[in-house]
Structures are given as structure tokens and as C-alpha cells.
């Protein structure tokens, strides 16, 4: 494993500009502002792809967005959603469905934990998407970076599996561990 120092610190707004993502290098520290989606179950990624293929209009606009592999705890209060807490889960659980998902929705950033496999890397390099590592176990820091939950989708199975649309404000720190040049920081991992 190559030791690498810290890179530049950048604050980016979503939807992310492709050139801004291509400028990111491993070791850079990113904070995000703007719209993002928390999706933490493989079957929800698959559902989005299936509905797109079936020609069904999706209830949310995923095009060019940032995806957070963050299981989310929220509460409905007076017709609005309040975030209780959220934080990163292991991203390699979504290796299989992610290359197609990145290509289909032109995803610009994936925020998670532990990196993803080479097929995901290939899709990231092609589309212009970076993997941003969140620090595991830091639910308080990341929850503070959520201004509000703007919508919640696909709760049929159970609310804990929902796709959550968020508005982020100074959300981070996130460390670039897979960049568009195909470089990695740390080793790829599997499992939860």
C-alpha cells in the first residue's frame, strides 16, 4: 500500500460538473452542497435500472447526481421528514449493479466506504465519476451535513430500505479514494 499525503480541499456543489470531478485526485478532501440520494440496498439500484429499461418514468431525477451508500434513519413529523442519523456502509455490496447504474444515470460521485471493484472503476473513468470515502462510524459529523430530507421514495418493503433525497450543506469530509484517472487509495474490499 502506497502512503499518500493529503491532497487539496475542495467544496463542490451538485449536480457536479464533469470537469470538476475529473480534476479530483486520490487523497483530496471533498465537502458537498446540494441535492444527493441515499441508497443503501442493491435491490433499489436494480429497481431504478429496471424501471428505466421498462420505459417507466422514475419518480426521482437521478441524472448526474451524487449517490450516498448511507443507510438512513428518518422520522415523519407533520408531513415532513426529519433526519435522525445516517452514515456510510460498505460499498462493495453494490459492485454488481453499479457499473450499469453509473452509465445509465451519468452518476458523478459515489460516497461510501471501502471502495469498489475494477468494473465500477472502468465505468467511473468512462463517465467521469469519483468514489468519495466517508469515515465509518462518524454518523454525527455526516448527519450535520444534511440540511433537509426533500423526499422519500420506494418504502413499500419497509421504511428502512427507502431511497432518500437530501439537500446537503458542507457535507463531509469525504476522501477521494478512486479517481477518474483510475488511481486507488487503500485496497478494495468486499462484504458489509
Amino acid at each position: 500500500m502506497r502512503a499518500i499525503g493529503m491532497g487539496k480541499e475542495v467544496r463542490l456543489r451538485t449536480p457536479l460538473d464533469e470537469s470538476a470531478v475529473r480534476d479530483l485526485s486520490i487523497g483530496d478532501i471533498v465537502h458537498l452542497d446540494g441535492k444527493a440520494f441515499a441508497i443503501a440496498y442493491a435491490f433499489q439500484f436494480q429497481r431504478a435500472l429496471d424501471e428505466l429499461k421498462g420505459g417507466k418514468p422514475l419518480p426521482m431525477d437521478l441524472e448526474g447526481s451524487a449517490i450516498l451508500h448511507f443507510p438512513t434513519c428518518f422520522k415523519e413529523e407533520g408531513g415532513r421528514w426529519r433526519i435522525v442519523y445516517f452514515g456510510p456502509t460498505t460499498s462493495s455490496k453494490f459492485n454488481k449493479v453499479t457499473p450499469e447504474f453509473i452509465r445509465a444515470f451519468k452518476i458523478r460521485a459515489i460516497v461510501g466506504k471501502g471502495g469498489m471493484d475494477d468494473a465500477v472503476m472502468a465505468a467511473m473513468m468512462e463517465v467521469g465519476c469519483a468514489f468519495l470515502q466517508a469515515i465509518g462510524g462518524c454518523a454525527v459529523i455526516y448527519t450535520k451535513g444534511v440540511e433537509e430530507i426533500t423526499n422519500v421514495y420506494w418504502q413499500e418493503r419497509h421504511w428502512t430500505y427507502a431511497v432518500v433525497e437530501l439537500k446537503l450543506r458542507d457535507f463531509g469530509p469525504l476522501i477521494v479514494t478512486m479517481d477518474v484517472k483510475g488511481r486507488r487509495l487503500g485496497k478494495e474490499e468486499r462484504g458489509p
Partner: peptide, 22 residues
């Protein structure tokens, strides 16, 4: 990373909220 972990632990205790989403 270690400094962030310590910061998060402190914030969780101060605000009586969960350290980790898991």
C-alpha cells in the same frame, strides 16, 4: 481520519446521539 473519529465521538456524547449509523 483519527482526528475526525475523535471529533465524532465527542459530538455524539455531547448531543446524546448515536456514534454510528450501525
Amino acid at each position: 481520519v483519527l482526528a475526525m473519529m475523535l471529533k465524532n465521538a465527542r459530538m455524539a456524547s455531547e448531543s446524546n446521539t448515536v456514534v454510528c449509523q450501525d
